[in-house]
Amino acid sequence: MNQMNNTLNGIFSWDFISAGIRVTTPVLLAALGALVADLAGTPNIALEGIMLFSAFVGVITSAFTGSLFIAFIAGILTGAVMAAILAYFSLKLKTDIIMAAIAINIFSSGGTIFALSVLTGDKGSSASLKSYVFPSVTIPIIDKIPVLGDILSGHHIITYIAFIMIFVVHYILYKTPLGLRIRSVGESPKAAKSVGISVMKTQFTALIISGVLASLGGLFLSMGYVSWFAKDMTAGRGFIALAAQALGGSSAYGVALGSVLFGFSEAASYSLQFMNIPYEITQSIPFLITVAALAFYAWKKINYIKKIKNNIRK
């Protein structure tokens, strides 16, 4: 019983909430990227590779220039350039976008190690390189408020950017002409073309936005979560983001909810380790919840379609 209490304390503590937020951050950013690309009709499964490469470039740039600002810009540019390469191959050269994305993922895994070994002589991690991390932010006044301060203040700067991005992405998608174009191109490219929208230009833009969002997630991993780059350190987060995006459907808020659900169930699985449960089970909790949520979402959607069909029949 005492053990149970300890674990429950572990789960319902502010530390747990900040752990959940940390786990959510990279997935959320990549999932928002997945959303923008998906709505434009160009599903971007290269998020994993883009994150990894940005994580790498950020660390290397900060080590060689000593400037966090330049590292930040370089990381984001990497995301944009890799997304542009994906867009060029799939839109201009008409390669299958899934194939091109797989190629980018494999290239990133090998390419980062290759570049790392050329630059530092190491092939495992950049542990010997003196690189820098982005700071955490303490919000004045709010951090003095007991509970709220713990939840809102003291997080990593990219975490704040990630949560702001939820609203930015929502605004872009649903309140700007660009967002309207992205959605219409994704819905029906032919119809969009008939009213004079350049399909290619719009999809190009959407992919680059998604690349930039994913690159922020990558920078968080190597310059916030930990302070070095390690080979394949994204460890599947880019793919989990795709699941989180599928969970959230076409709304930025839904996608955020999906990412948060995943992040917190993952954090809970860490705390549950200390209860008398085999670790294989605690480790599958985040995925079980994801599958359950997807099933729930599909069930709701089917009901919704049925309802519409019934209404039409009437």
Partner: peptide, 19 residues
């Protein structure tokens, strides 16, 4: 359950330190 995920390793360890 992974050999290449330092971020996850860190999170697990923080949880142990908390306990």
């Amino acid at each position: 359950g992974a050999w290449n995920d330092p971020a996850k390793g860190k999170e697990f360890t923080l949880s142990m330190y908390r306990n």
